[in-house]
Each structure stands twice: as structure tokens, then as C-alpha cells.
Computed example of a mutant assay.
Amino acid sequence: MHGWLDNCASFDGIAANVDADILCLDLAGHGLSGGRQHLGAYNVWLDLPEILAIADQLGWQTFELLGHSRGAAIAFLLAATFPKRVERLVCLDGIFPLMGTAEKAPEQLFHSINTVRKQRLRPVHYYPTFEAAVAARQKGMFPLSPDDAIAFANRAVSKSANGYAWQYDPKVSAPSELRLTMAQLSAFADAIVCPLTLFIADKGILSGDEQLLTFLNKYPAWEKRYLVGDHHCHMSAQANAIAQWLNDIDGIEI
């Protein structure tokens, strides 16, 4: 499961080198998947029943989860909520949903609803060429290499009479209506029973998060592995290394 504003091309490099079946999803509102027909934000817990429905359709009573960033947060919640169905959890430079406090809940809800309203009215941004759309993605919140940006664009940039545009539901840019508190997050963490491995990129979003790293120390059974690279290093830069690690796990079925 991929990260925010990404798509299943996030795992092209890993999938090509893993000696097992791997199903890569375009999560709702991303890539070639349709958007949700509601007026709310894309809360990560909304993905859980959709992923379970896919597993049910495939006849998978149990399965393993591999998630990056936002996708890792979705996988974390799924492993905690349905522990009997998840055999292993692998998180790539992400693990928890964004946290909040009870005191800021009204402000969070207000911000989410207002952002959704604005995003629904936002005009589509068109680029004159495919290359211009790729260049814009390279300079996003998390910079990408040209090859990685092209991989995303091949699955998410559409052409029309107006030019080239990135396809995603604009509502995915809105923050969640509510955020889990530390106490709630701890309850989910305590509910995970499967083996958990977290890959942390040295230039990613987790390496400097002292609160997160302190929290992780409460769960010594969770394996932490470190990678050289940025938030998307699991794509071109470290795809082979991660795939090799996955292949070395006895009996892995992703």
C-alpha cells in the first residue's frame, strides 16, 4: 500500500525482484482507482474495509502487509484491528497515523471540513507537456528522482484538450476529521501480534522524530532496520535491497 498522492507504481522495483506473489493497490482516490463519493476526508481507517474486501475476493484468509508512509499507517491499523488475518507487517518510512490531542479535536474537525470544501472547488491544474507534469512532481513535498516521478506519472497523469493533469481526488489533500490520541495509538500498538519490521530512511520522515522513536522503544519485539536515502528510497534506490530482505524471510507470501 502506497503513500499519499502516490500510486501502486511505488512498488514496481520491489515487485520485480520479490520471489512471491505481490498485489500492489491503487488506493481509493489515487492512480487508476476512483474517488470516494462523499464530502469527507480520506481518513486512513476508511481503507481497511476496502482492503479486507479485496482479500476476501481473492480468498485470502490471512496475508502479509507491506506499506509505505500513509500506506504503512493503514497497514498498522489493519494489523491491529484484525490481528488474526495479518501474518506479518512491513512498514517503509512510516508506521503511525498522525497523532492529535483531545483538546484540539474541534479545531481539527473544523480544519478538515473547510479544506474539503475548498479542495472540491479547486480548478484542475494543467501542464503544457507530460515532462512538465513530471518535473512538478519531482519538486513536491517529498522530492523524487526523475525515474520515480515518471513511474508515478505513467499511472496518474492524463491528457486532455487542456493539457496534462495529475489524476487524484482533490479531497485526499484534506486532513482527517479526527486524529488518534497517544492513548488510542498505544491501544492499537498493543493489539498487534504479528512480526513487525520498520524500515527507517536516514533522510526520511521518521529518522528525526524523537517522540516516535521514544514510543517505538516500548515495543522491543518490533524490528527496526535503517536505509540510506530519502522518504521514497524504497523505489529506485533501495528496491533491490528491500526485495532481497523480503526474499530471505522464510515462507513469506505478500
Rank of each mutant, 00 (worst) to 15 (best):
G208P: 06
G35V: 06
K203M: 13
W45T: 11
R117K: 15
S186C: 06
A73T: 07
L78R: 05
V172F: 09
D169A: 13
Q167T: 14
I254D: 00
G251Y: 04
I254L: 14
L227G: 11
C233S: 14
S112M: 03
D56S: 13
G229T: 12
C91D: 01
F96T: 03
I113H: 11
A9V: 06
R155D: 05
A102P: 01
L144W: 03
T62W: 00
G35Y: 03
F142L: 03
A243K: 08
E210W: 06
Q184G: 10
W245Q: 05
L46V: 06
D12A: 11
S186Y: 07
L23Q: 07
H2E: 01
A151W: 00
H38I: 12
C24K: 08
N217T: 15
L206F: 08
L206S: 14
I192A: 02
A221L: 05
A221N: 08
A41P: 14
G208V: 04
P175Y: 09
S33L: 06
F11P: 07
A28M: 13
F82Q: 07
V90R: 00
N154V: 05
H30S: 02
I74L: 03
Q61C: 04
A151H: 03
G34H: 10
V116T: 09
V124S: 13
I249N: 00
V90A: 00
A183R: 08
L121N: 12
Q108F: 08
A241I: 11
L77I: 04
F82A: 10
L109A: 14
K139S: 12
D230V: 04
D250P: 09
A191G: 06
L48C: 06
N240Y: 10
P175M: 02
K171N: 12
Q211C: 10
E210H: 14
L65V: 13
R36A: 13
G40F: 10
T181P: 05
I252V: 12
P220W: 01
F63M: 04
R137Y: 04
F82H: 12
R88G: 11
G31I: 01
D26T: 10
Q244R: 10
R120T: 15
I242A: 05
I54R: 09
V44E: 02
L5D: 01
A239E: 00
F96D: 00
L121H: 14
R179L: 12
